[in-house]
Nucleic acid binder design. Structure first.
Length: 278
DNA sequence: ATTGGTTCCTGCTGGC
DNA sequence: TGCCAGCAGGAACCAA
């Protein structure tokens, strides 16, 4: 799915399109995503004013004027497209599972071919206790996420650091691409046991995570096959990947000769340089 | 308690 | 050119 930078980019697009607007009509074309959507979704959205849109981990949170919060996750193939008021209607797509019509004519479509995404409802007061959000770790761009905090989260864990970074309880929002990139920047082997990432190594990894996520957000995220920004534009951070998807290409840091390798970890592809990542 | 494997679903791509 | 196995950004769930 879109990882943190992609979700952040979508949230910024939604924020512009939705804030201060009223939802006048909701179409629910297919209620069975990864989990069934709430049966009262349409009733609870229609007529509500949108107060804001924000992000937590890879979740999109839409605050409504009655205290309801819409929780949306894009899964692996989910996207939200925005048709500006007066724009030609999009071609009908069988994977537009939920369609929102706003009072200014804006149309938002939640599209997810693989249906790994989810949509749920909560309320502002109980949001932190919602089962989807309650166990999630610190936001990586929050100043509270520092070397000692990461080291504490990794203490005693005998899983590879790559797998630990994908664990949303350790740190929020990192997925396969940015885990590979951050470990390369930090010079840490993806195979290294998580518990050995402490002290200076943890500091380096935190700095690397912040660096890659910040640059990716600035680029509008990475566009893969299934991902476009809310506005329909493409992010371009995929051109800045140093290891992800570059199997066999020379490591940009080591110079010629040392090829980027690919291996499987926990069923996912890991890309790394065996020379400069220890 | 941690950890690794499996599973959900569809679409695209690379190799034959 | 055509076919199809394998793979894809995630994470909940299960068993050990």
């Amino acid at each position: 799915m879109p990882e943190l930078p992609e979700v952040e980019t979508v949230v910024r697009g939604l924020e512009r399109a939705m804030t201060g607007r009223r939802i006048v009509r909701v179409e629910m074309n297919r209620p069975d995503l990864r989990a069934p959507m709430p049966p009262d979704l349409v009733a609870r959205l229609e007529g509500r004013l949108v107060e804001g849109v924000r992000r937590r981990a890879k979740y999109i949170l839409v605050d409504l004027d009655d205290g309801t919060v819409v929780i949306a996750h894009l899964g692996m193939s989910g996207r939200i497209t925005i048709s500006a008021p007066g724009a030609a209607p999009n071609r009908r797509d069988p994977h537009d599972h939920v369609v929102l019509h706003l009072d200014d004519g804006t149309v938002l479509r939640f599209n997810d071919a693989r249906r790994f995404g989810r949509i749920d409802l909560s309320d502002r007061v109980g949001l932190a206790r919602h089962p989807l959000l309650s166990g999630i770790g610190p936001e990586p761009l929050d100043p509270a996420f520092d070397g000692p905090a990461l080291a504490a989260a990794l203490a005693g864990r005998r899983t590879p650091i790559k797998a630990a970074l994908l664990d949303q309880r350790v740190v929020a929002g990192i997925g396969n691409i940015y885990a590979c990139e951050a470990l390369h920047i930090a010079g840490l082997s993806p195979r290294r046991l998580a518990l050995t990432v402490a002290g200076g190594r943890a500091e380096r990894l935190v700095a690397a995570i912040r660096d890659v996520l910040t640059r990716a957000i600035a680029a509008g995220g990475s566009s893969l096959r299934d991902y476009v920004q809310a506005s329909g534009e493409l992010g371009y951070f995929q051109h800045d990947w140093v290891v992800y998807g570059r199997e066999g290409e020379p490591c940009r840091r080591c110079g010629a000769g040392h090829a980027v390798r690919r291996m499987a970890q926990a069923g996912r592809s890991t890309f790394y340089c065996a020379r400069c990542q220890r």
